[in-house]
Every structure is written in structure tokens, then in C-alpha cells.
């Protein structure tokens, strides 16, 4: 199975997002570089709106992720509740 990844700018907006992603995807691994965090995961990775809302204490629109995304790899499927990256084989 191939790895998907997502990279975020490292700032106060993404800190809780990264925390939520790592909690929801125990198989994921975060690699830190200057100004950036890249999260690799075997097969697929899911970002859940509710988990982020839990940490930031306000409602969150997953499209806000676009503010601090750097790059992604894999097929994306996004709806109101989750943002999912995966490879199909």
C-alpha cells in the first residue's frame, strides 16, 4: 500500500488541526521541518471536523484548511464532515 501525505504550515491555526489528525489516525506520522509539518500515512488519512472543533472550542469549516495547506498526495474526497486522502491501490 502506498503512502498519502498532507503538509501544513506550522502556526497557531494548524497546531490543533495536526493534533486532531494524529489522534484520529494512529498510523500517521508527523515529520517536522522549518515552518512546516508533513504528515505521512499508509493508505489513507482522515481529517474530521468534529475532532478539530473539540480542540478549538468553536465551529470549524473544513474548507478553512485551505488557509494553511502546503501540499497533499492521494485522491481527495471532501464533504462537510471529513477530508479524506487515499490511494485506491
Amino acid at each position: 500500500m502506498s503512502k498519502v501525505f498532507i503538509a501544513f504550515q506550522r502556526n497557531e491555526d494548524t497546531r490543533p488541526i495536526i493534533e486532531a489528525v494524529l489522534a484520529d489516525n494512529p498510523h500517521a506520522e508527523a515529520i517536522e521541518s522549518p515552518a512546516m509539518v508533513k504528515i505521512d500515512a499508509e493508505g489513507s488519512l482522515v481529517i474530521k471536523r468534529e475532532s478539530i472543533e473539540e480542540l478549538i472550542g468553536r465551529s470549524f469549516d473544513l474548507q478553512e484548511l485551505q488557509m494553511s495547506l502546503i501540499t497533499i498526495s492521494g485522491h481527495l474526497d471532501e464533504d462537510d464532515d471529513q477530508f479524506k486522502l487515499s490511494w485506491l491501490n
Binding site: 504550515q9 512546516m36 485551505q66 494553511s68 495547506l69 502546503i70 501540499t71
Partner: peptide, 10 residues
């Protein structure tokens, strides 16, 4: 760079 890159994922 990162501001531009935030568009690149799209």
C-alpha cells in the same frame, strides 16, 4: 511561498 503553496494543493 506558503501562501502560494496553499493554492497548490488545489
Amino acid at each position: 511561498g506558503f501562501s502560494a503553496q496553499s493554492d497548490e494543493a488545489r
